[in-house]
Every structure is written in C-alpha cells, then in structure tokens.
Design a protein around this nucleic acid. Sequence first.
RNA 1: UGGCCUAUAGUAUAAUGGUAGUACGACAGAUUUUGGUUCUGUUUGUCUAGGUUCGAAUCCUGGUAGGCCAACCA
Length: 559
Amino acid sequence: MHELKKEEEKNLNFIEEIIEADLAAGKYQQIITRFPPEPNGYLHIGHASSICLNFGLTKKYPGYTNLRFDDTNPVTEETEFVDSIKEDIKWLGFNWKNELYASDYFGKLYEFAITLIKKELAYVDDSSSEAIAALKGTPTEPGTNSPFRNRSVNENLDLFARMKQGEFPDGSRTLRAKIDMAHPNMIMRDPILYRIKHAHHHRTGNAWCIYPMYDFAHGQSDSIEEVTHSLCTMEFIPHRELYDWIIEKLEIYPSRQYEFARRNLNYTVTSKRKLLQLVNDNHVTGWDDPRMPTISGLRRRGYTPESIRDFCDRIGIAKRENMIDVSLLEFCIREHLNNIAHRRMVVFDPLKIVITNYPEGQVEMLTSEDNPEAETVTYRELPFSREIFIEADDFMEVAPKKYFRLAPGQMVRLKSAYIIKCDEVIKDAAGKIAALHCSYIPESRSGSDTSGINVKGTLHWVSVAHAVSAELRLYDRLFKVEDPSSEEGDFKDYINPDSLQVIGRVYAEPSLLQSGFNDRYQFLRKGYFCLDRDSTANQLVFNRTVTLKDTWAKEQKKG
RNA sequence: UGGCCUAUAGUAUAAUGGUAGUACGACAGAUUUUGGUUCUGUUUGUCUAGGUUCGAAUCCUGGUAGGCCAACCA
C-alpha cells in the first residue's frame, strides 16, 4: 500500500505570507485592500494583475477591497476613464466594497496639512519650480534649505489659507514637508505636499485651487479607509518612508505599504503614456483596439475574464524584474476557448470542388457537434451539396511526403460529411487551378460510415450555394521586438506593420448568421473568433482572438 | 561616485537550513473525423568568490549584473 502525499501545497506568494502571519498573530481580524487607479487612461493587462491580487486576497482571506480613484491631479483626469475602469473591473469578475475617490478626502487632507504646519513640520515655500529643483541636490549631493523654510507657524497658516482662497497664481507657492534636505532618500528632501492649480476637477469642480500631491493623499486615504495592506509597484519603494512619516506625524491609522514588481509582457508596451501615444497617433483605432494590451482591447479581441484571471494566477507575484512571454497568455485563452467555443466551418481562401457523382440540385442536412469537449455535446445542422469550397492550401498538385490533405488521386474526409477522392484538376486558360472534380463515397457519411476506408486528413468545407460572407480581422503582435521600450530610438519605430490583416470576404457556414456578440467560436483548423462590434445586419465581422496551435506550419517552416 | 530593490531552466514562479519542483515554451512519440484537444516521455537552472554549518538556492561578507530614486505626475 503506497502513501499518497496529501500535503496541502501552500505555495504562497510573499504578500500572502505576510497576511497569513499578520492574521495568525492576531494583528487583524480582517484585511482591507484597495485598488487605486488614476483615472487618466484605460486599464491594461498589468492592472489586471494588480486587480486580481488586491481583490483575490480579500476573496481568499476575510475582508474586503475598495475601489479608490486616485484623482489628485485635475488636469489629466476624466470621467470617461472612471467609467471604463469600473466596467473593466466588473467585467474581470470583481466587486468592490466601496467606490471612493481621493478627492472625497480633500477636506480632511487640508486639515491634515494644517496639523503638520502647527507641528512645525510643514511650510509654505515661495520658491519657483526651478529653484526647488536646484536646491534639491542630487543622489550623491545633499540639498540646500529653502530660504522660506523657517517661517513662523502663523505665517504658514495664513499663507496656506490664502493659497486655498485662490489669492496666488499657479506655481507661485507650494506647501512642503519640513524633513531633511540632506536625506539620502531624495523623496524625503522636503517633499511638496500641495500645489496650486486653478483647474476644474472632474468631481469637485472649482471648489479647490490647491491639490495634494500623491504622497500627501495616498497614505492618508489608505489610513482613513483603514486599509491594512496597501499594495503598489516597486517604484514606490522610496515613497514608503514618507508614507510612514506622514502617518506617524499625523498619528492616524497605520496602514502599511508593500511593493511588488509590475508585470511586463513581451511584444507590447504597458505604460499609459505610451498607450496614449498609440491612440493619439492613430497607430491603433482606439483604447479598445483588439491589438492593445488594454482590458478593453483584450475583451474586444475575444479574451474571456476567466482566461485573464487564470493568466494572472499563473504568472504570480514577486519582486524581481520580469518579462512574461505572451505565449502564456495565449495558452490561457486557448485553454478556456477550447472548452467553451462552438466549432464552425469557414473557408478563408476558397477552392471550388464539384462532386461529380453527387446528384445535381440535391441538398442534405448534416449534423456536426458544436464542441466535442463539452460535457453534454450539442449539435448544429449544415447543408451539403454538389459544389463546395475547401481551403486553397488544403490542396496541392504535387504533395510532399507527409501531406495529409487533398492531392490528385488522394482521399480526404470532409468534416462531418463524406470521404472524397480527387479525380481531376481543372485549370483556366492561364494554367491556374480553377476547380477540382472529385467523387464521394456514399457509404462514408459521418456517423454511418460503412466504407471501411481510413483517411489521414479531415478538411473543413462550406457549401457554395449556402455560404454566407463575412469579414475577418486577423491580429498579430503589435511590436516586432520583445521589449520596444528598451530598443534604440522611439518605441513606435518597432511597431509591427502587419499587426492587422483584413480578409474582406470569407465563406462561412450559414449558422454563423445567428452569431451574437458574446458567442465564442472556433473556426475549425483556423483559430478562435468572436463577432466584432463593427458588424452590421448585412456584414458579419469577426476578430481572430488567437490562432490554433499549428504543428503543421511549424513542420513546414523547418522543411 | 549616495540610498534602495532584485538575482533559481528560454520565460514565469515554488522549495521558508535537509531529495531543486511546477507551469508555459521547445523537442520526440501515442491517440484523434480539427496537423486542434488529450496522453506519455525528453530537454535545460540556483550570478560569482569566500564564510557559518554535519548540511546552504536559503544565513553572513565581498564582488558582478539588472532595476528604481533628482515632475508643483501617479
């Protein structure tokens, strides 16, 4: 009798370890996390990882997750982005406990600033942006104190109130923390807390003309919400010291910040700035272009939320630099789609076949499974007749050794139909193949095959008289190189000019006329497709989500 | 030439002082009415030099490599 190793595989990531330790120590009864996007762009696959982390943690452990928009910079933020972000999170399958905005806390934040001023830990600086930069020092040299650093509490209080009143123009004054201009961490060299911006805010309108900086909003927002584990990416590591400093001086709820490495996907870019450029310069049709690594782009492309969650799960969370191979993302979507997509037949590049021994004018309805992988298999009907289309590259006049498709004198199975044999190649005046004359084996009909014939190849096909036309959009990677940002010159120089290939007219089986926007299809032997929203009553448009694995193509490339 | 972070197979991620494992990829084979799926097998790894220890991917020290920090961005 052998022993089954039933040890529970824990495999926790480092954040889960921290949380389990905190929970075990009784530090918290429940954990609270937050997802804190700035509403200045669309969410991308990197955000999906953060969303799955933050929301996933509070599904696994007791607690909840807030959605908090980090909207402290009115000039870049818009309601359009707020709406898209909410839609994307919901689509991914997560629900936030509270929908919050950093701007909800502007009043409290203002009071926090006054507290700091009263404690002589903040001062109003009249220095220009340039002067502040000049006195900041460098990583290797200490900075110099501002001449305004030692103003009295009363003067600071008065000036700060007048900043709020709108007495001063943009950029003329700031509120700064009084910490240490020689601090080895440059973030701690009297960081700016508030700046003057006479700008309209998407939520507070014109109520404010001073706005808190990230560092003076994020930690306190976490604290107000009693966020226990505030998770962010590694570039915020130096900010943690300031995050803790502010919380300590204000004596408020001690949220803790933990950092993880942002995820990078190869052959694309995930930086809002760069994605915005692609949109603005019309390299793509919009934020939801199916080639974009945005959530909305992936959605339109045909990715499912399940596949994206699975992907985020598989790549994990750690602290080291990474470049994730897009083949893993493709594996995840193929795996899901293989289970749920309905099989359909579509001929991309038609070659006409006349089945010479099939009665003229006869049409018979054949049944074919929607998905052989399904627990309970359902079926559809499709018409078969004397003239059909097959894929042009499923025929070769002179076939190589391991070619399983059609060739003169050879036999193949037509999927869910009959075995046919190629008898004659019909050519036009120019010597180009115009059609094939084949004969079918009547007793080889799928489901009731008594022919005893075994063929190696099975082809997809469409009845000529019943074919419906559709447009196909085939996508390839957006960039020609793995990491466009690290290449010489501008990242846009490395855009793949062939990332979109449109096939204006393909021949589809008639059942595709019933396609809905949420339907997922596998076009047999071709790939996974979904209906694009550009479709109209007269024109079906399908996006290719991902190809099928094609070991034959690989074989040919080798040969 | 300051401070901080990181280093395990091609990629990503485990192993928490005790047999270096998993997934993807790649390669080979079996099955297949999709050259898909499924199944089986193979391949490749602890950055480096010391130290502590019976024992080090893990702890310590030095080096090397990569990343982050000098927006009134987040």
